[in-house]
Design a protein around this nucleic acid. Structure first.
Ligand SMILES: [Mn+2]
Ligand SMILES: [Mn+2]
Ligand SMILES: [Zn+2]
Ligand SMILES: [Zn+2]
Lengths: 140, 140
DNA sequence: GCTTCATTTTAGAATTATTCTAAATTATGT
DNA sequence: ACATAATTTAGAATAATTCTAAAATGAAGC
Protein backbone atom coordinates (compact mmCIF):
# COMPACT_ATOMS: atom_id res chain seq x y z
CA UNK A 1 0.00 0.00 0.00
CA UNK A 2 3.06 2.23 0.22
CA UNK A 3 5.31 1.00 -2.59
CA UNK A 4 6.64 3.71 -4.88
CA UNK A 5 6.90 3.23 -8.63
CA UNK A 6 5.59 0.39 -10.69
CA UNK A 7 6.89 -3.07 -10.05
CA UNK A 8 5.66 -6.33 -11.47
CA UNK A 9 6.41 -9.87 -10.44
CA UNK A 10 10.18 -10.31 -10.29
CA UNK A 11 9.91 -13.16 -12.76
CA UNK A 12 8.13 -10.94 -15.26
CA UNK A 13 10.78 -8.25 -14.89
CA UNK A 14 13.52 -10.75 -15.61
CA UNK A 15 11.67 -12.28 -18.55
CA UNK A 16 11.15 -8.83 -20.04
CA UNK A 17 14.86 -8.13 -19.64
CA UNK A 18 15.77 -11.38 -21.38
CA UNK A 19 17.25 -12.94 -18.24
CA UNK A 20 16.27 -16.44 -17.22
CA UNK A 21 14.46 -16.26 -13.90
CA UNK A 22 16.35 -18.79 -11.84
CA UNK A 23 15.67 -19.20 -8.14
CA UNK A 24 18.52 -16.97 -7.03
CA UNK A 25 17.94 -14.30 -9.65
CA UNK A 26 14.27 -14.19 -8.75
CA UNK A 27 15.10 -13.87 -5.05
CA UNK A 28 17.43 -10.96 -5.76
CA UNK A 29 14.97 -9.29 -8.12
CA UNK A 30 12.19 -9.59 -5.52
CA UNK A 31 14.43 -7.90 -3.01
CA UNK A 32 15.62 -5.13 -5.31
CA UNK A 33 12.59 -4.36 -7.47
CA UNK A 34 9.95 -3.86 -4.83
CA UNK A 35 9.08 -0.41 -6.10
CA UNK A 36 11.27 1.50 -3.66
CA UNK A 37 14.51 3.14 -4.76
CA UNK A 38 17.54 1.62 -3.13
CA UNK A 39 21.29 2.10 -3.11
CA UNK A 40 22.98 -1.02 -1.86
CA UNK A 41 26.36 -2.65 -2.00
CA UNK A 42 26.78 -6.28 -3.04
CA UNK A 43 27.53 -7.21 0.56
CA UNK A 44 24.37 -5.47 1.79
CA UNK A 45 22.30 -7.27 -0.81
CA UNK A 46 23.92 -10.55 0.11
CA UNK A 47 23.12 -9.94 3.78
CA UNK A 48 19.54 -9.00 2.92
CA UNK A 49 18.90 -12.10 0.85
CA UNK A 50 20.39 -14.26 3.58
CA UNK A 51 17.63 -13.07 5.91
CA UNK A 52 15.07 -14.64 3.59
CA UNK A 53 14.89 -18.38 3.10
CA UNK A 54 16.79 -18.11 -0.18
CA UNK A 55 20.44 -19.22 -0.23
CA UNK A 56 22.58 -17.29 -2.70
CA UNK A 57 26.37 -17.39 -2.86
CA UNK A 58 28.20 -14.08 -2.79
CA UNK A 59 29.71 -14.83 -6.21
CA UNK A 60 26.19 -15.23 -7.55
CA UNK A 61 25.17 -11.92 -6.03
CA UNK A 62 28.01 -10.25 -7.92
CA UNK A 63 27.28 -12.14 -11.14
CA UNK A 64 23.61 -11.29 -10.94
CA UNK A 65 24.09 -7.61 -10.11
CA UNK A 66 26.36 -7.27 -13.11
CA UNK A 67 23.81 -9.00 -15.33
CA UNK A 68 21.05 -6.75 -14.05
CA UNK A 69 23.26 -3.75 -14.72
CA UNK A 70 24.06 -4.92 -18.26
CA UNK A 71 20.33 -5.39 -18.85
CA UNK A 72 19.63 -1.85 -17.67
CA UNK A 73 17.74 -2.89 -14.55
CA UNK A 74 20.35 -1.31 -12.27
CA UNK A 75 22.95 1.43 -12.37
CA UNK A 76 26.32 1.23 -10.71
CA UNK A 77 27.27 4.28 -8.69
CA UNK A 78 30.95 4.76 -7.88
CA UNK A 79 31.46 7.31 -5.22
CA UNK A 80 33.41 5.71 -2.47
CA UNK A 81 36.71 4.25 -3.54
CA UNK A 82 36.04 1.00 -1.80
CA UNK A 83 32.46 0.12 -2.53
CA UNK A 84 30.20 0.05 -5.53
CA UNK A 85 26.58 0.97 -4.95
CA UNK A 86 23.88 -0.62 -7.07
CA UNK A 87 21.08 1.82 -7.70
CA UNK A 88 17.56 0.64 -8.46
CA UNK A 89 16.62 4.10 -9.67
CA UNK A 90 17.59 3.91 -13.31
CA UNK A 91 16.07 7.24 -14.31
CA UNK A 92 18.16 10.36 -14.80
CA UNK A 93 19.08 11.72 -11.37
CA UNK A 94 21.94 12.74 -9.14
CA UNK A 95 23.13 12.05 -5.60
CA UNK A 96 23.83 13.36 -2.18
CA UNK A 97 26.57 11.28 -0.60
CA UNK A 98 26.68 11.42 3.16
CA UNK A 99 30.30 10.78 4.03
CA UNK A 100 29.42 10.24 7.68
CA UNK A 101 27.05 7.34 7.08
CA UNK A 102 28.08 6.17 3.62
CA UNK A 103 24.47 6.60 2.50
CA UNK A 104 23.35 7.80 -0.89
CA UNK A 105 20.23 9.86 -1.50
CA UNK A 106 18.65 10.70 -4.81
CA UNK A 107 18.30 14.17 -6.24
CA UNK A 108 15.78 14.39 -9.08
CA UNK A 109 17.46 15.36 -12.33
CA UNK A 110 15.46 18.56 -12.65
CA UNK A 111 16.62 19.78 -9.25
CA UNK A 112 19.98 20.54 -10.80
CA UNK A 113 20.59 22.57 -13.91
CA UNK A 114 23.75 21.98 -15.81
CA UNK A 115 24.56 24.47 -18.50
CA UNK A 116 27.42 25.14 -20.88
CA UNK A 117 28.62 21.59 -20.76
CA UNK A 118 31.88 21.41 -22.69
CA UNK A 119 31.74 19.32 -25.84
CA UNK A 120 33.03 15.80 -25.64
CA UNK A 121 36.54 15.20 -26.98
CA UNK A 122 36.79 13.66 -30.45
CA UNK A 123 36.56 9.87 -30.70
CA UNK A 124 34.52 9.72 -27.50
CA UNK A 125 30.86 9.75 -26.76
CA UNK A 126 29.17 10.98 -23.65
CA UNK A 127 28.15 8.10 -21.44
CA UNK A 128 26.60 9.97 -18.56
CA UNK A 129 26.96 12.99 -16.32
CA UNK A 130 27.15 12.27 -12.60
CA UNK A 131 26.71 15.00 -10.06
CA UNK A 132 27.67 14.06 -6.53
CA UNK A 133 27.04 16.45 -3.68
CA UNK A 134 29.25 15.33 -0.84
CA UNK A 135 28.03 16.09 2.67
CA UNK A 136 29.77 16.00 6.02
CA UNK A 137 28.57 16.40 9.57
CA UNK A 138 27.75 20.08 10.21
CA UNK A 139 30.24 22.15 12.21
CA UNK A 140 28.09 22.17 15.37
CA UNK B 1 60.00 27.32 -19.74
CA UNK B 2 56.63 25.65 -20.15
CA UNK B 3 55.49 25.03 -16.58
CA UNK B 4 51.93 26.10 -15.81
CA UNK B 5 50.95 27.74 -12.53
CA UNK B 6 53.17 28.95 -9.76
CA UNK B 7 55.42 26.47 -8.04
CA UNK B 8 58.16 27.09 -5.54
CA UNK B 9 60.84 24.77 -4.25
CA UNK B 10 59.21 21.60 -2.98
CA UNK B 11 60.78 22.18 0.41
CA UNK B 12 59.22 25.64 0.62
CA UNK B 13 55.81 24.24 -0.29
CA UNK B 14 56.06 21.64 2.46
CA UNK B 15 57.32 24.16 5.01
CA UNK B 16 54.43 26.47 4.18
CA UNK B 17 51.99 23.57 4.64
CA UNK B 18 53.51 22.72 8.01
CA UNK B 19 54.93 19.39 6.83
CA UNK B 20 58.50 18.46 7.60
CA UNK B 21 60.41 18.21 4.34
CA UNK B 22 62.02 14.81 4.66
CA UNK B 23 63.88 13.24 1.76
CA UNK B 24 60.95 11.17 0.58
CA UNK B 25 58.36 13.88 1.03
CA UNK B 26 60.53 16.31 -0.87
CA UNK B 27 61.00 13.82 -3.69
CA UNK B 28 57.25 13.29 -3.96
CA UNK B 29 56.54 17.02 -3.77
CA UNK B 30 59.07 17.72 -6.50
CA UNK B 31 57.34 15.20 -8.70
CA UNK B 32 53.82 16.38 -8.01
CA UNK B 33 54.17 20.15 -7.64
CA UNK B 34 56.05 21.01 -10.80
CA UNK B 35 53.41 23.47 -11.91
CA UNK B 36 51.53 21.07 -14.19
CA UNK B 37 48.14 19.66 -13.21
CA UNK B 38 48.21 15.91 -12.75
CA UNK B 39 45.83 13.12 -11.85
CA UNK B 40 47.74 10.11 -10.65
CA UNK B 41 47.16 7.00 -8.60
CA UNK B 42 49.42 6.02 -5.74
CA UNK B 43 50.89 3.24 -7.85
CA UNK B 44 51.64 5.65 -10.70
CA UNK B 45 53.33 8.06 -8.34
CA UNK B 46 55.30 5.23 -6.81
CA UNK B 47 56.41 4.13 -10.28
CA UNK B 48 57.35 7.70 -11.20
CA UNK B 49 59.46 8.29 -8.11
CA UNK B 50 61.19 4.98 -8.66
CA UNK B 51 62.51 6.30 -11.97
CA UNK B 52 64.37 9.03 -10.09
CA UNK B 53 67.23 8.25 -7.77
CA UNK B 54 64.94 8.55 -4.73
CA UNK B 55 63.85 5.35 -2.99
CA UNK B 56 60.39 5.60 -1.43
CA UNK B 57 58.37 2.68 -0.09
CA UNK B 58 54.83 2.27 -1.33
CA UNK B 59 53.51 2.65 2.22
CA UNK B 60 55.30 5.98 2.40
CA UNK B 61 53.74 7.06 -0.87
CA UNK B 62 50.30 6.37 0.60
CA UNK B 63 51.15 8.04 3.91
CA UNK B 64 52.52 11.08 2.17
CA UNK B 65 49.66 11.46 -0.29
CA UNK B 66 47.21 11.40 2.58
CA UNK B 67 49.23 13.99 4.47
CA UNK B 68 49.38 16.21 1.41
CA UNK B 69 45.62 15.82 1.02
CA UNK B 70 44.98 16.68 4.66
CA UNK B 71 47.18 19.76 4.23
CA UNK B 72 45.16 20.86 1.19
CA UNK B 73 47.98 20.33 -1.29
CA UNK B 74 46.07 17.59 -3.14
CA UNK B 75 42.50 16.51 -3.72
CA UNK B 76 41.37 12.91 -3.85
CA UNK B 77 39.13 12.08 -6.77
CA UNK B 78 37.04 8.92 -6.52
CA UNK B 79 35.60 7.93 -9.81
CA UNK B 80 36.70 4.43 -10.51
CA UNK B 81 35.72 1.93 -7.88
CA UNK B 82 39.16 0.47 -7.68
CA UNK B 83 41.55 3.39 -7.75
CA UNK B 84 41.86 6.75 -6.08
CA UNK B 85 43.28 9.56 -8.15
CA UNK B 86 45.28 12.29 -6.48
CA UNK B 87 44.69 15.61 -8.17
CA UNK B 88 47.25 18.40 -8.02
CA UNK B 89 44.67 20.89 -9.23
CA UNK B 90 43.14 22.02 -5.97
CA UNK B 91 41.03 24.79 -7.46
CA UNK B 92 37.32 24.41 -8.12
CA UNK B 93 36.87 22.31 -11.23
CA UNK B 94 35.24 19.19 -12.65
CA UNK B 95 36.28 16.16 -14.68
CA UNK B 96 35.98 14.19 -17.83
CA UNK B 97 36.62 10.53 -17.09
CA UNK B 98 37.65 8.47 -20.07
CA UNK B 99 36.49 4.97 -19.26
CA UNK B 100 38.56 3.54 -22.10
CA UNK B 101 41.90 4.80 -20.81
CA UNK B 102 41.15 5.48 -17.15
CA UNK B 103 42.38 9.03 -17.66
CA UNK B 104 40.98 12.10 -15.98
CA UNK B 105 40.85 15.53 -17.61
CA UNK B 106 40.00 18.80 -15.96
CA UNK B 107 37.02 20.95 -16.84
CA UNK B 108 37.30 24.51 -15.53
CA UNK B 109 34.59 25.24 -12.97
CA UNK B 110 33.06 28.01 -15.08
CA UNK B 111 32.59 25.66 -18.04
CA UNK B 112 29.69 24.10 -16.19
CA UNK B 113 26.80 25.97 -14.68
CA UNK B 114 24.96 24.31 -11.86
CA UNK B 115 21.70 25.92 -10.84
CA UNK B 116 18.88 25.17 -8.43
CA UNK B 117 21.07 23.04 -6.22
CA UNK B 118 18.84 21.48 -3.58
CA UNK B 119 19.56 22.62 -0.05
CA UNK B 120 21.68 20.38 2.09
CA UNK B 121 19.83 18.18 4.60
CA UNK B 122 19.82 19.36 8.23
CA UNK B 123 22.82 18.48 10.38
CA UNK B 124 25.02 18.31 7.30
CA UNK B 125 27.22 20.76 5.52
CA UNK B 126 28.14 20.79 1.89
CA UNK B 127 31.64 19.47 1.39
CA UNK B 128 31.91 19.73 -2.37
CA UNK B 129 30.09 19.22 -5.62
CA UNK B 130 31.72 16.84 -8.06
CA UNK B 131 30.63 16.68 -11.65
CA UNK B 132 31.97 13.74 -13.60
CA UNK B 133 31.36 13.45 -17.30
CA UNK B 134 31.94 9.84 -18.23
CA UNK B 135 33.14 9.16 -21.75
CA UNK B 136 33.33 5.97 -23.77
CA UNK B 137 34.81 5.13 -27.12
CA UNK B 138 32.62 6.59 -29.87
CA UNK B 139 30.35 4.21 -31.77
CA UNK B 140 32.64 4.12 -34.82
C1' DG C 1 80.07 15.94 16.79
C1' DC C 2 77.57 12.77 20.03
C1' DT C 3 73.18 11.58 22.71
C1' DT C 4 68.55 11.49 23.11
C1' DC C 5 63.79 11.38 21.84
C1' DA C 6 60.24 11.97 18.65
C1' DT C 7 59.08 11.42 13.95
C1' DT C 8 59.25 9.04 9.83
C1' DT C 9 60.07 5.23 6.90
C1' DT C 10 59.97 0.55 5.82
C1' DA C 11 59.07 -4.49 4.53
C1' DG C 12 56.00 -7.44 4.85
C1' DA C 13 51.70 -9.14 6.72
C1' DA C 14 46.80 -8.19 6.95
C1' DT C 15 42.48 -6.57 5.20
C1' DT C 16 38.74 -6.07 2.00
C1' DA C 17 36.11 -5.79 -2.17
C1' DT C 18 35.90 -8.17 -6.09
C1' DT C 19 36.95 -11.68 -9.66
C1' DC C 20 38.29 -16.17 -11.13
C1' DT C 21 38.28 -21.29 -11.40
C1' DA C 22 36.72 -25.58 -11.95
C1' DA C 23 33.38 -28.62 -10.18
C1' DA C 24 28.56 -29.43 -8.91
C1' DT C 25 23.83 -28.22 -9.78
C1' DT C 26 19.97 -26.91 -12.35
C1' DA C 27 17.23 -25.89 -16.44
C1' DT C 28 15.93 -26.74 -21.23
C1' DG C 29 15.05 -29.24 -25.47
C1' DT C 30 14.28 -33.65 -27.36
C1' DA D 1 14.40 -39.73 -19.05
C1' DC D 2 18.82 -38.05 -21.53
C1' DA D 3 21.84 -34.99 -23.28
C1' DT D 4 23.43 -30.45 -23.27
C1' DA D 5 23.94 -25.80 -22.06
C1' DA D 6 23.48 -22.40 -18.51
C1' DT D 7 23.98 -21.32 -13.81
C1' DT D 8 25.61 -21.60 -9.22
C1' DT D 9 28.99 -22.47 -5.91
C1' DA D 10 33.00 -22.73 -2.52
C1' DG D 11 37.08 -21.47 -2.20
C1' DA D 12 41.32 -19.66 -4.19
C1' DA D 13 43.24 -15.66 -6.37
C1' DT D 14 43.87 -10.71 -7.13
C1' DA D 15 44.69 -5.99 -6.19
C1' DA D 16 44.32 -1.60 -3.78
C1' DT D 17 45.04 -0.08 0.52
C1' DT D 18 46.07 -0.20 5.49
C1' DC D 19 48.38 -1.94 9.46
C1' DT D 20 52.31 -3.40 12.39
C1' DA D 21 56.36 -3.30 14.68
C1' DA D 22 61.03 -2.56 13.80
C1' DA D 23 64.72 0.21 11.72
C1' DA D 24 66.18 4.67 10.15
C1' DT D 25 66.23 9.46 10.31
C1' DG D 26 65.79 14.20 11.99
C1' DA D 27 65.77 17.97 15.47
C1' DA D 28 67.45 19.62 19.87
C1' DG D 29 70.46 19.97 23.41
C1' DC D 30 74.86 19.50 24.89
MN1 LIG E 1 23.85 2.51 1.63
MN1 LIG F 1 39.63 -3.26 -4.52
ZN1 LIG G 1 20.17 6.97 -7.14
ZN1 LIG H 1 41.33 17.65 -11.70
Amino acid sequence: MKAKKQHGHPEAILQAAGIRPTRQRTALAALLFDGCDKHMTAEQIHAAVRKTKARVALATVYNTLHQFTAAGLLHEVMIDSNRVYFDTNIGNHHHFFDEATGELHDIPADNIHIARLPKTPPGRKLDRVDVIIRLRAAAR
